[in-house]
Amino acid sequence: MEVPYIVKEREDTGLINSKLGIWIFLASEIMLFGGLFSAYIFLRLAAPPGDFDYWASKLSVPMATVNTMILISSSVSMVMAWASLKLNDFSKYKMYMGITLLCSAIFLVIKYFEYTGKFHHGIYPSSSTFMAIYFTLTGLHGLHILGGIAVMLYFYLPISHGLWREQPEHFSNRVEALGLYWHFVDLVWIFLFPVLYLL
């Protein structure tokens, strides 16, 4: 017998399993990044005055601004991809999912140039506590992007499209869960950007 409430909502909670599951996962992610943000503030207070500002000024604000825009765009195209599925328009879904993939790839490429630029100037995680937390936070965020890309590829490529033909409702629920994860990754960046680059 199948596990119930995969596609149809349970009456008293009004939820399907995957939606509750992904939100609880995101709750744990909030605590994961929360722990690191907590470390950031703690270390900033413990550091000699001006130390964090000095090292933060070595980061490239234009690159990060462009990356912020790109990530926001990918978030919009992700939610559009889901909406296209709801409108039963699979070719539009493919287009929007493709844009999301492209944006996330560009994000990583820019991140790569940011990192190598730092290494080129002899700046490493061991250079200062600020750089350490910068590389850790953005690195962990980058890993989340990579994970997202892997799942997006799965839903972009034909291997998953059988599910769409058989159970379109189930397929769009999965894309919705993926979308929630992706918006969360975007949301983390929205805080990372000012905290690391601008303050």
Partner: peptide, 22 residues
């Protein structure tokens, strides 16, 4: 940042119309 985050959470993640358990 909080305003931006609320916009993403509220509209893209549909939190403004989400179920009370979540």
């Amino acid at each position: 940042a909080s305003v931006k985050a609320s916009l993403v959470a509220g509209y893209f993640m549909h939190l403004i119309s989400e179920k009370s358990i979540i």
